[in-house]
Design a protein around this nucleic acid. Structure first.
Length: 506
RNA sequence: GCUUGUGUGGUGUAGUUCGGCCCAUCAUGACGGGUUCUCGAUCCGUCGACCCGGGUUCAAAUCCCGGCACGAGCACCA
């Protein structure tokens, strides 16, 4: 009786909470090869970052290799941009925290693709089709074979040569190479899908050297095989791509990689991530460039001071589901705040400042002491000398307009008389000690203030808010926390000498 | 139209393969409170979900059947 139940008890699996991403199917440590394959028609966006992070994360997890492949075989619709090759490499390295193991450019691998194409035509896996796109569309819908399908192998080889011949009869749109998958597939996307076509526009990398270019499904299929990619993880919009490629792999006798998918992602604040659309918007002057802080490009996020590790964590938390999702930036911002907070020194920034004049002859204090970071006293303190009487205090216009008393943080409770003098508006110190819950405001003594601008988005507009920044000697690139305002990064100096900051988030 | 995928709190996510440990996890968010001389951080509390309808079963988020909703592909783009 006991023995009969024992096997049951052994098989009883305990449900454990999974940490991080699930295991990859059929993954042998040290043998996994993954790739991330963007089109270099612009820099990487937050959307791309999922591909970079998930793939490189698995590459590290299994001690495997990570390929960065530029899928730049379209010279017309999504024309590659030369600078984007460098941008993407930089974006990748920053985000993944390491360089790709292998970098490939499809345009530099053309001879491989054309050789395979020629061979596949000779083996009759593919044929040249001279129907127009519209004609074939009709045939595909009706599940009818096109006349070209009946051409002999020899004829196809001849037509293939004509496609490649720069002086030949075939022009752009005249002919295309199709994979002979069959017109009887229930899924219309799979019916004799196109593998290569003619493009006359020059390629920014290789110029006019080639006339026939592979389409994504063919280029990717051949390259993944050559590179011995073991796992493909990509958006589920490419599911039919997998099915098409599997048909080709079967003909060629190749083994298709394990494939996993994620769903479509939107971010509440940005919507989708269309590189092409951003390009248009930038050209139209709606944005100042690829690193405009309002854009969801990695360059913009990096400029604003986002932490790469926080972005990595963001995608790993979202996991590998095929659900279409829309996430708010607050989820990422929360992770980012945790990442940057401990290293962010506190500084005071007074936007749109007003000057309040205070008589300090009655008080004993000569300077004000504030922590660099309230949770980490070891980081030291900030000393603000009060200087000569009267003390000129800078506060933001918002705080100024109220008639009620205000407590200058870490200093004194004051009242503002709203009487203007030559030096500023008159105010009075009510007491130094904090005795009530008068609202606390941030401020600066004029001798600790330097001109500054804070670049931030307000109602869709990019605003350079003028103000005064606490004098400091932190280098550019330091993420700071502006008291009562949120995180920002020191970026540089304006022509007029003002310090420039870019807002990160609250 | 054909093909294909997905439905768990406001937003994400774990659990679904192999039904019971799930009156359902964690994060984020909102709300309330403690602490703090920042609108930050931190601590405590509260809110809130298995798309719908049948079926199988002692037992269903999980299995079966049928709906519904939303997304994607059917480009000589990637």
């Amino acid at each position: 009786m006991l023995e009969a139940e024992a096997p049951d008890a052994l098989e009883k699996r305990v449900k454990e909470r999974r940490e991080g991403l699930p295991e990859l199917p059929n993954a042998d440590k040290g043998k996994v090869i993954l790739r991330f394959a963007p089109n270099p028609n612009g820099p990487l966006t937050l959307g791309h970052s999922r591909g970079v992070i998930i793939n490189s994360h698995y590459a590290e997890k299994y001690d495997g290799k990570m390929i960065l492949r530029y899928d730049d075989t379209d010279t017309k619709i999504k024309r590659p941009e030369l600078k984007a090759y460098d941008w993407i490499r930089e974006d990748f390295t920053w985000l993944a925290g390491r360089k790709p193991d292998i970098i490939l450019e499809a345009s530099a691998r053309m001879s491989e693709y054309l050789t395979h194409a020629k061979q596949f035509i000779e083996e009759d896996y593919m044929y040249v089709c001279t129907c127009t796109a519209d004609e074939f569309k009709q045939l595909r819908n009706d599940q009818q074979e096109c006349p070209c399908r009946a051409n002999s192998t020899l004829k196809n080889s001849d037509l293939w040569d004509q496609m490649n011949d720069k002086e030949g009869g075939f022009n752009e749109g005249d002919a295309v190479v199709r994979v002979r998958t069959g017109m009887d597939h229930t899924n219309p996307a799979l019916r004799d899908w196109p593998a290569l076509r003619i493009q006359r526009a020059g390629h920014p990398k290789v110029g006019e050297k080639y006339r026939v270019w592979p389409l994504l499904d063919f280029q990717s299929a051949v390259e993944d095989h050559i590179q011995e990619v073991t796992h493909i993880i990509r958006g589920k919009d490419l599911m039919d791509s997998t099915r098409k490629q599997k048909l080709l792999y079967k003909m060629a006798g190749w083994n298709y990689p394990e494939t996993l998918y994620w769903g479509r992602v939107k971010v509440h604040e940005f919507g989708g991530f269309s590189t092409s659309q951003m390009k248009i918007d930038i050209e139209n002057g709606n944005f100042e460039g690829w690193d405009d802080p309002r854009l969801p490009t990695l360059r913009a996020l990096r400029r604003r001071g986002y932490d790469a590790q926080a972005i990595r964590q963001f995608w790993i938390d979202l996991g590998l589901t095929q659900k279409d999702i829309s996430v708010p930036m607050s989820t990422l911002n929360s992770l980012n705040a945790k990442a940057v907070d401990v290293e962010a020194p506190r500084l005071s920034f007074v936007r749109d400042p007003r000057t309040v004049i205070l008589d300090i002859t009655e008080i004993e204090l000569t300077n004000v002491t504030l922590p660099v970071h309230p949770e980490h006293p070891a980081k030291g303190v900030r000393e603000w000398p009060l200087g000569d009487n009267p003390l000129k205090v800078k506060i933001t216009s918002e705080d100024f307009s109220s008639a009620e008393g205000r407590r200058l943080k870490d200093f004194a409770t004051i009242s503002i008389n709203h009487q203007e003098t030559e030096q500023g508006w008159k105010g009075e110190i009510i007491h130094i000690e904090r005795v009530d819950d008068t609202p606390i405001i941030h401020w600066l003594p004029s001798n600790m203030a330097q001109p500054a601008v804070l670049v931030l988005e307000e109602d869709g507009e990019l605003v350079s808010a003028e103000g005064l920044l606490e004098i400091n000697d932190y280098p550019d690139g330091t993420v700071v926390q502006l008291e009562r305002m949120g995180f920002a990064i020191l970026e540089g100096t304006e022509e007029n000498g003002a310090r420039r900051l870019v807002r990160l988030h609250g």
